[in-house]
Design a protein around this nucleic acid. Structure first.
Lengths: 200, 200
DNA sequence: GAGCATACCGAATGATCATTCGGATTTCGA
DNA sequence: TCGAAATCCGAATGATCATTCGGTATGCTC
C-alpha cells in the first residue's frame, strides 16, 4: 500500500477514485460469495487485477473490508446528521431520515449484505472501533428522533425502544429482498415503514 | 462419521443426543466467532473434544453448519404448520404465529445469527436445497396468513407484500438485540410487532 | 469380567490462503 | 519525448486449515 506521496493532486485523485472503485466491486463479489469464501487471488481476478496489485490499495484483506463498511456508513451518517439538525418537527424528520436510509440501503445493497454477514468481526475486532462508533451514532440519531415522535404521542407502540428495534430490523432487511425494477420505489417502501411506526 | 449401525436403540439415542448437543454448542461458538473464523481444532477445543472426534458426528464442517440450520428451522416449521392448519381467524393465527416465531428466534438466538451470517452459502450451495426449501415454506406460511389478514381489511398497509417484508425484517432482527432478562418478554415483543402490522 | 462396538484421540497430510517482493510496464509532468 | 513515479504483475513464502487414520480408552451386553 503506497499512495502517492507529495501534493500531486491529480494523481492523488486518480488513486482515490480507483480505490473507491475497487471497494465498490469488492463489495459486489463479497456479497455474492462471502468475504471468507473469496480468496484474494480470486477477488483480484474478478476485479481484473493481479493478487499483488490489490495490496497497492489496501494493506490487508481486512482493511478492504473496513473500507467497504466506511463507504457504507460515512455518507449515510453525514446526511443523517444534517436531517436531524433541521428545524422540522419530529415526525417529518423521521420520514426524511427513513427515506434517506432506505434509499441508501438499496443503493449500497451489496455493502449492507457484507456488513450484515460480517457482524461478528465488526462487533469484536480491534480495528473496528470507528465502524462500530459510526453505526452506534447513526442508531442514536434514529433513536432520538423516534423518542421525540413518541413524546408527541405519535407512535403506535407504547414502547419507543421496541419501535426503534422494529424499524432497524425492517429497514436493514430491505437489502435482502429489494430488486431493482421492483414494484415499489425506495420512497414508497420508506413511507410504508414510517406508516407502520407512526400513528396518524 | 459412523453412527451406530444396527437397531441398538439405546446407543442410537445416546448418539443422537450427543450430536444434538454438539450442534447446540457449535452454534454458540460460530455465533460469536464466525463460522469461517473458527477452525475445526479450535471449535473442538471449545466443545471439550479433539478435532478428529467431531468427525465422528459430522462428515464435514459444512454438514455441521447444515445441522445448525436444520435444528433452527425444522421445529419452527412443524409448529408453524400446526398453527396455520387451525380454524382460527386469520388475525389470531398471525398473532400465534408471530409469538411462536419470536420465542423461537430468541431461544435459538445463536442459530439465527449463524443462519444470517452464512446467508450467501445457504442461498447458493448445492447441499443447501432442503434448508432453502424449509425457509421458503415458512415464509410462505406467514405470507398466506398475512394475505388473509389483508383480505379481511385488517392490515395497516395497502401492500400485503410490504407488510410481509417488514415483519420478516423485524422478527429476524430480534436475534441481534434481544438479551435474556431484558425488559420485554418474547410475547410482549411479538404482540408489539403484530400491533404494528394489524389495524385495530 | 470377556468381548466388542462405540467414542475419542492427536499427529500427519495435502491443499489453500494472505501476503511479500523484485522487477516489468504504464502514465504523468515538464 | 524523457525521466521518474505510480501502477501492476505473478511466482515464492510461510502459515493455517479441514480432513484422515491408526490407534487407545470407554462402557455396554451377555
Amino acid at each position: 500500500m503506497s499512495p502517492p506521496k507529495p501534493d500531486r493532486t491529480a494523481l492523488r485523485e486518480r488513486y482515490d477514485r480507483r480505490q473507491a472503485q475497487v471497494v465498490l466491486d469488492a463489495a459486489r463479489v463479497f456479497a455474492r460469495q462471502g468475504y471468507d469464501q473469496t480468496s484474494v487471488p480470486q477477488l483480484a481476478d474478478d476485479l481484473g487485477l493481479a493478487a499483488g496489485s490489490l495490496y497497492h490499495y489496501f494493506g490487508s484483506k481486512e482493511q478492504l473490508l473496513i473500507a467497504i463498511c466506511d463507504q457504507l456508513m460515512d455518507p449515510l451518517l453525514d446526511e443523517a446528521r444534517a436531517i436531524t439538525a433541521s428545524d422540522d418537527d419530529a415526525t417529518s424528520q423521521l420520514q426524511a431520515l427513513v427515506r434517506l436510509w432506505v434509499a441508501h440501503v438499496i443503493e449500497r445493497r451489496n455493502h449492507m449484505l457484507v456488513f450484515q454477514q460480517e457482524r461478528h468481526v465488526i462487533d469484536h475486532g480491534d480495528q473496528w472501533r470507528q465502524v462500530r462508533d459510526h453505526r452506534k451514532e447513526f442508531e442514536r440519531l434514529v433513536e432520538s428522533v423516534l423518542e421525540r415522535v413518541h413524546r408527541d404521542g405519535e407512535t403506535r407502540l407504547a414502547d419507543a425502544r421496541l419501535s426503534l428495534a422494529a424499524l432497524l430490523g425492517m429497514v436493514n432487511h430491505t437489502a435482502q429482498w429489494y430488486r431493482p425494477r421492483g414494484r415499489l420505489s425506495a420512497a414508497e417502501i420508506a413511507d410504508g415503514y414510517v406508516e407502520l411506526i407512526v400513528a396518524r
